[in-house]
Amino acid sequence: MIVLKGFGGPEQLACAPMPGEYLSPGSSQMLVRIVASSVNPIEWKMREGMGAPRWLWRWRIGRQRVLGIDFAGTVAALGENCRGWRNGDAVMGIRPYGGTYADFALVDPARAVVVHRPLGISASSAGVVPWAGLTAFKALGRRSLAGRRVLIVGASGGVGHLAVQIARHCLNAALVVGIAGARNSGFLRACGAHVAIAHDRLADPIDILTYARDWPGSFDLIVDLVGRDAYWTSLAPRLLRPDGLFVAVAVPALHPARAGEDLGTLAALKLLARLSVRRWSGRYRFVGGLMGELCDRRALQRIADWMADGRLVPHIGRSYPLEQVAAAHRACEAGVVTGKIGLSMQA
Rank of each mutant, 00 (worst) to 15 (best):
A163V: 05
V247T: 13
S38Y: 02
Q29F: 04
P118A: 05
L106R: 12
L263E: 11
I152Y: 01
L151Q: 03
G73W: 02
K5D: 14
Q64M: 14
M50H: 15
V114K: 02
Y320K: 01
R279H: 14
R238G: 00
P256E: 00
R60F: 12
Y97M: 13
I197W: 01
E333N: 08
A126R: 01
N87H: 10
G260V: 09
R111H: 14
H116G: 13
I152P: 01
G93Y: 08
G49Q: 09
V3G: 06
G73Y: 03
V337R: 05
M18E: 12
R258T: 14
S38K: 00
A167K: 03
V75E: 01
K5L: 12
M50Y: 15
D305W: 06
A273C: 12
A16I: 02
H194Y: 09
I341L: 10
A326F: 13
V159F: 07
H315Q: 10
G217E: 07
W306G: 07
R86D: 14
L145W: 03
P256K: 00
T338A: 07
Y320A: 06
A331M: 08
R117C: 11
F7N: 04
R47P: 07
E21Q: 10
I94C: 13
P130H: 07
N87S: 10
D108M: 05
R111L: 15
